[in-house]
Design a protein around this nucleic acid. Sequence first.
DNA 1: CGATTTTGACCAGCGC
DNA 2: GCGCTGGTCAAAATCG
Length: 275
Amino acid sequence: MMSLKMEDTLNFNESSPFIPFSSMFDFCEVEKGSSLGFMELLGVQNSDFLFDFPQLSTMSSILKDSQERIVKECYEVLNTHQPSTPNSSFISCGSNEVVNDEHDKIVEQLHEQQNTNKKLKTKEKRKREPRFAFMTKSEVDHLEDGYRWRKYGQKAVKNSPFPSRSYYRCTNTSCNVKKRLERSFTDPSIVVTTYEGKHTHSSPVMATTSTLFGSIMHGANYFSRYYQQQQQQQKLFNAMSSSTSSNVNGTFSQEVPFSRDNGLLQDIVHSHLLK
DNA sequence: CGATTTTGACCAGCGC
DNA sequence: GCGCTGGTCAAAATCG
């Protein structure tokens, strides 16, 4: 497996405050370090995805800094959250060697299983959009993000020294995005912002302020795809390992799903930000 | 006067 | 079933 190094791409300022990407697991009810947990974390299921932006006061002033963080953190994830099993390679989707009846059968079974799980889930729970949250050190509760929001509710937070949690909805009638704001339990200077859903329109305010959120969402979507693919391939690998354990090693090829040359950076960060 | 915020009531999900 | 909690609704109040 090739190692990805962001130093080759960006001159990251080592002295600037930086909390590792892995720290976001501290805020989530998923298993730390597992690729499954990470998938759920990215909104593939119903969990939250958290970034941490310490020492930052306004969205507009941190644009460049955050962009570098996102890229650095993304590279860290790629290098540290690979499948834990040794030799648990990625299986090339286009590999001719694994195209046979057994393969098709297993794929079909996996799809059926996934559909069954989906049906059960939607029956169990009301459908909720993937959530995406980040923390910002700020004295101001409501940070400018380029979109216009209307407050539709406020709730007292139990056992919290801070009065409430605020609920906002995008003012665009065709857009269903929601946002939740609250002060951190552990550090009052930190504002936790949670977005739910995806804007169906462009930012009505400045392009520059919305670009940060756009980049973050873009990064989240990227990893969502990445780990969804990885998880699916891992399942297939496990299924085939149990059924055809004798020739596993010779059957699958190791492969990096998104190579740097194919534009990992471009996939995460909007191109005009890289200039 | 329209847009936005405030706030108490209400609803749904969950654990016991 | 009951109580708790997170999330939403909607009428009234406030703002620009």
